[in-house]
Write a protein that binds this DNA or RNA. Structure first.
Length: 422
RNA sequence: GGAGAGAUGGCAGAGUCCGGUUGAACGCGCCGCACUCGAAAUGCGGUUUACUCUUUUGAGUAACGGGGGUUCGAAUCCCUCUCUCUCCGCCA
C-alpha cells in the first residue's frame, strides 16, 4: 500500500497515478477519515496519559499505607471514557485501513502513460521468425495427434480449463519445470523453495490479490484458505513481519507451483487448448532487495526470465506495460511474449514486476540499513520464469515438422530422455 | 482426532505463583568513543518498533504470539483464537 503520510502530503500525485492506471479512487473520503481518526486519537492519548500518571500515583500512595479512593473514583470515569473512545478510534482505523488497501500502487515515472493495451511499448525482440515450408499446425492438433493431453477428460474430472497431460505430454511438462528451476538455481543463484499451495488471507493481502480481487480466487470455505494464483503469494509471504539485515539482501527465490485462477470475467477469451486455464504450472522468481537497487534488479530479473526462452530457442519480444495495463500492485512491469507460429500470436508467458515498497508495507517486510542501522521497507519484485502452458504451445508449434513430429530442443533433452516427440 | 507443555526485545533468557517508576534484569550480538602502529583483549557510553504532536530539541501513546475481559493500574489474573513442541491414535 501507499504510505498514509505520502497520501496526506502529496494527494495529487496519488490521484494522478491512479488515474493513469485507470483506477477510480476516492481520496477525499480517505483523507477526511484520516483527519477524524487522528483528532480522536489525540484525545484518546491525552486521556490515557492522564490515567497512566494518576494510576502511578495511586500505586505510590498505597505503598505509603494511605488510601486513594478519590483518585480511583475519578479514574473509573476516565477509563470509561477511554473505552468508548477506543471503540470509535478502532472503527475508524479499520475503515481507514480498508480504504488504504484498495489504493493501487503508483506507476514509476518511467512508465509510458497509456489508455489501454494498445499503448504498451515493445522494447526489444529476440530470435527470427521460424520459416516453415508447410502450414504449421496449432498445438491442439499436434497435441491430439501426438497424444500429449486430453482436454475432454480433464473437463470431465474438473471442468474446462483443467488440462490433463498424458504420457510424453506429462513428462514434457515436468521436464520444462525441472529445466527452468535448475537453470535459475545453477546459473543465477536463486534459492529453490517449494511453497504451500494454500495460503491464509494475510499472504493474499500482502501481494495485493486481496481485498480487491477476492472473486478471482479459489477459496476453501471451512478453513478460510486460498488456492494460490501464483507462487508469488507464498514466496513473498516467507519474510512477512520480519526485519532482514541489509547484508542478506538481495534474497532471491525460485519456486515451482501450480497456479489456480477462477478467471472470472474472462469467459470466451482464449478458450481453446492451453491458452487460458484455471490450473497451470509456473516457475516463479521472487526477489527482496534494497530500494536503491530495485530497478537494476528488475532489469536482471527480466533478463533471467528471457534467458529461458533463449535457451529454448524461442522467438519472443519484451513489452513494457503502459500505465493502463499495469496491475494493481505493480510500479513497473515488463511482459515477455513468445511467438506461437500455429496460433500466429504473441503469447504472454511472463510478467516481471517491481512492486517497490507496496507489498513490503502491506506485509511489513523490512530490513535494517547497514549505514545508519535504521529500519525501512524492502522492495519486492517477481517474475515468471516462466509459465508452462503457453510455453508448451510455442515449443510444439515452433519445433514441429511436416511429418507431425516435434523436435525437442537440445537443452531439454537431458530432462526428457528423448530427442523428438513422435 | 485425544492428552499435555509453551509463545517475552536482533539472539539467548529472567520476570508470570504474591498485578503498581519493568519498554522490560543478566549475558551475547550490534554501534560509538578510549587504549593500540594496527588488531585482539579491556574500559566507558549507546542500542526496539509503530503512530501522534512539535520548526529543531523534545513530549505523549501503544506493543511481552493475536483478540477480548477483570482492575484506578496487566508481561503478570480470566476467557478465546492462532502457532510451536512432546506423547498417543490415524495416515501418504
Amino acid at each position: 500500500m501507499i504510505h498514509l503520510s505520502f497520501i496526506r502530503e502529496q494527494p495529487d500525485k496519488v490521484r494522478k497515478g491512479a488515474k493513469n492506471k485507470g483506477e477510480v479512487i476516492d481520496l477525499d473520503s480517505l483523507l477526511n477519515l484520516d483527519n477524524e481518526h487522528r483528532s480522536l486519537l489525540n484525545s484518546l492519548n491525552e486521556l490515557r496519559a492522564e490515567r497512566n500518571r494518576v494510576s502511578e500515583e495511586i500505586g505510590k500512595t498505597k505503598g505509603t499505607g494511605k488510601d486513594a479512593l478519590d483518585s480511583i473514583q475519578a479514574m473509573k470515569k476516565v477509563s470509561q471514557q477511554i473505552k468508548e473512545l477506543e471503540e470509535k478510534v478502532g472503527v475508524l482505523a479499520e475503515q481507514l485501513n480498508s480504504k488504504l488497501l484498495r489504493i493501487p500502487n503508483l506507476p514509476h515515472d518511467s512508465v509510458p502513460i497509456g489508455k489501454n493495451v494498445e499503448d504498451n511499448v515493445v522494447i526489444r525482440e529476440w530470435g527470427d521468425e521460424h520459416q516453415f515450408d508447410f502450414t504449421p499446425k496449432s498445438h491442439l492438433e499436434l497435441g491430439a495427434s501426438l497424444n500429449l493431453f486430453d482436454f475432454e477428460r480433464g473437463a470431465k474430472i474438473s471442468g474446462s480449463g483443467f488440462p490433463l497431460y498424458i504420457g510424453k505430454g506429462a513428462k514434457l511438462e515436468r521436464a520444462l519445470i525441472n529445466f527452468m528451476v535448475d537453470m535459475h538455481v545453477d546459473q543465477y543463484g536463486y534459492t529453490e523453495v517449494f511453497p504451500p499451495f494454500l495460503v491464509r488471507r494475510e499472504a493474499m493481502v500482502t501481494t495485493g490479490q486481496l481485498p480487491k480481487f477476492e472473486e478471482d480466487m479459489y477459496h476453501t470455505e471451512v478453513d478460510d484458505l486460498f488456492l494460490i494464483p501464483t507462487a508469488e503469494v507464498p514466496v513473498t509471504g516467507i519474510h512477512g513481519n520480519e526485519i532482514l539485515e541489509e547484508e542478506d539482501l538481495p534474497i532471491k527465490y525460485v519456486a515451482y507451483s501450480a497456479c489456480f485462477r477462477r478467471e472470472a470475467g474472462s469467459y470466451g477469451k482464449d478458450t481453446h487448448g492451453l491458452l487460458r486455464l484455471h490450473q497451470f504450472n509456473k516457475v516463479e522468481l521472487v526477489k527482496y532487495v534494497t530500494p536503491g537497487s530495485s530497478y537494476d534488479e528488475l532489469e536482471s530479473l527480466t533478463a533471467q526470465a528471457e534467458s529461458v526462452l533463449q535457451a529454448l530457442g524461442l522467438r519472443y519480444r519484451v513489452v513494457e506495460l503502459c500505465t493502463a495495463d499495469l496491475s494493481f500492485a505493480s510500479a513497473k512491469c515488463f511482459d515477455l511474449e513468445v511467438w506461437a507460429p500455429g496460433e500466429k500470436k504473441w503469447l504472454e508467458v511472463s510478467s516481471c514486476s517491481n512492486f517497490e515498497g507496496f507489498q513490503a508495507r502491506r506485509g511489513n517486510i523490512r530490513y535494517r540499513r547497514e549505514d545508519n542501522r535504521k529500519v525501512e521497507c524492502v522492495h519486492t519484485l517477481n517474475g515468471s520464469g516462466v509459465a508452462t502452458p503457453r510455453l508448451l504451445v510455442a515449443l510444439l508449434e515452433t519445433y514441429q515438422r511436416e511429418d507431425g513430429r516435434v523436435e525437442i530442443p537440445e537443452v531439454l533433452q537431458p530432462h526428457l530422455g528423448i530427442k523428438e516427440l513422435a
